[in-house]
Design a protein around this nucleic acid. Sequence first.
DNA 1: CTGATACTGAAGCATTTCCTTCAGTATTGT
DNA 2: ACAATACTGAAGGAAATGCTTCAGTATCAG
Lengths: 114, 114
Amino acid sequence: MLQYQPPPLDALFQALADPARRAMVERLTAGPASVSQLAAPLPMSLTAAAQHLAVLEAAGLVTSAKVGRVRTCTLDTAALSQAEQWINARRMAVGAQLDRLGDYLAATKPDDEP
Amino acid sequence: MLQYQPPPLDALFQALADPARRAMVERLTAGPASVSQLAAPLPMSLTAAAQHLAVLEAAGLVTSAKVGRVRTCTLDTAALSQAEQWINARRMAVGAQLDRLGDYLAATKPDDEP
DNA sequence: CTGATACTGAAGCATTTCCTTCAGTATTGT
DNA sequence: ACAATACTGAAGGAAATGCTTCAGTATCAG
């Protein structure tokens, strides 16, 4: 059986690094939309928007299906939280490091310098 | 007075989109490090690593100060959570949309189809 | 059937990214 | 004083990115 493999973080963050693509993600939080609908507010050609959409899809951030002549796109929140988790884990690691500093300070001079 | 302006999300996500730069961020969660220390584990020249560092600094993810001939770099978690918050806000928005669907379903057919 | 709609594909072009090498400056250790 | 260390700057090149336009294929509406 084929294993699902999470999109690499590279593609995920790269996809989020463009304002046009973030705008699309933002629009999709309100529900599924067609390619045209996603492209409409953007100051670029439909083709360009479709290319951005391809990037989002490659990153796993959106899935899409074509019915008739319209392709409907949906946001995949799993990919979104995948990125969030990476960031959060690093922030936690920093906290842990500060905690260790606290422990160190508490352990080495518990009763110096009154 | 000069206002602090948060680094644009563009630069933030772009900075995180590279594995070498994420490795640096990861290393910095364990505490401050010099340019050489950050570059050492990476399969590239010191110059290349320094360039990556410049990207991280431009994105606001790291701050650095030079003492003598060594520049010491520190992770700035504020920038990190800035990116996290954007993602989280979108995920929340999706949840809200689903909630509204639930409300809609509850409101429109509270007693149809038993 | 005809025309409008909704993409889709291919090509081309300017800019940016990621890396290289080579050279230079400022410290520090002996 | 001399050499090693730790960057720093400049230049260049291969590849990726973000557009564009032009042309094509389905699909739907009248």
